[in-house]
Every structure is written in structure tokens, then in C-alpha cells.
Amino acid sequence: MTTLETIVETLGLKCKCCWEKLKTEVKGGYAGDLLSDVMANSKEHDVWVTRQVHQNIVAVASLKEHAGIIIVQGAQPDSDTLAKAQKEGIPVIVTELSEFEVVGRIYKLLHEQD
């Protein structure tokens, strides 16, 4: 089983909120910045990799029951985003890495476990 914690530790990411939820299992992932695309195509227990930082990403992750959100390329979530994520219990993780690299490494991690 791959957890968010495994991903955070292996890739050297930084968790900004909801540390207590890092034991959550990650079953897959979805990458995208168009919210409608993510709503339509992502799945429960996915980790969502995005460049979006405003609070509506929390609404999407919560509705879709994502394991967590990873914000890439050094972008920082708005303070409203973190407050909402705390309330909804959605881990928000940040990294300087590019979306391409994050996705590639998570994919490898998830499939090494197969």
C-alpha cells in the first residue's frame, strides 16, 4: 500500500496541512489544472497534482474524495485554501519540482508496489 506519507518522504515534498491524514492510502493519481477535467475524470483516493492554488481546489478534492493535493513548481496555496483544506481534512502538499517530475515519480512508486 502506498500512502501519502511514502510519497512525501520519497519525493522530499512539504506538507502544509493535515499531517494527520498522511497515512491515507493513495490508489492512483490525476494531474490537471482545469477543474472540470479533474471533476469529470479523477477518482477517489487519487492524489491530485496541480498548479492551481485558490480555494476551489479544496472543494474539488473534497467532492472527489482525493487522498490529497500536491501543488507543484514552487507555487504556494492561498491562505484561504489552507484554511478550507484544514476544515475539510484535505492534505495540501507543496514542492519546487515540476508537474512532470512529480507525476513520473509517483507513477513509478505506485507501480513498483504492484
Binding site: L34, L35, S36, H54, N56
Partner: peptide
């Protein structure tokens, strides 16, 4: 800028 307005809203509603 918020990631909306990609022209997927109504098509998604119809699709689902």
C-alpha cells in the same frame, strides 16, 4: 484563472 471556463461544464453535465 481559477481553472474554470474551459467549456466543459455543460458537456460534463450532459455526459453524466
Amino acid at each position: 484563472e481559477m481553472g474554470f471556463g474551459a467549456g466543459m461544464g455543460l458537456p460534463n453535465i450532459r455526459k453524466f
